[in-house]
């Protein structure tokens, strides 16, 4: 039961991340699309974090900031190469 619960929570995040990787592969030379993809996947990860912790009733400013800062790092690490 717990495993099923975990999978349903993580599945959307996994789908978004896998889709982003495929997007990067397929649209390797489309600069605008790659930028949109990385921003969208970063935003998805951040929002997923907020929703996930809200459901678990352990959402705090520290947790939100942790997701935000990792999101910013990831997005920036890719954007400087696009």
């Amino acid at each position: 039961m717990k495993e099923k619960y975990l999978i349903t929570h993580y599945l959307p995040l996994i789908v978004v991340m896998v889709a982003a990787v495929f997007g990067f592969y397929i649209f390797a030379y489309d600069k605008a699309l790659k930028m949109s993809l990385v921003i969208a996947s970063g935003a998805s990860y951040f929002v997923w974090g907020l929703i996930h912790h809200f459901i678990h009733k352990d959402l705090s400013w520290e947790v939100a900031f942790e997701y935000l800062i990792i999101c910013l790092f990831g997005v920036y690490a890719i954007l400087i190469l696009v």
């Binding site: 996930h52 520290e62 947790v63 990792i70 999101c71 890719i78």
Partner: peptide
């Protein structure tokens, strides 16, 4: 208390693969 490590690892894995996939060229 903090963010989910699994989620961070998933996101950073995506970032790493994207970095590897990105090629030079304009």
């Amino acid at each position: 208390v903090g963010g989910r490590t699994v989620a961070h690892v998933l996101f950073l894995s995506m970032v790493l693969i994207a970095i590897i996939l990105i090629q030079s060229g304009d």
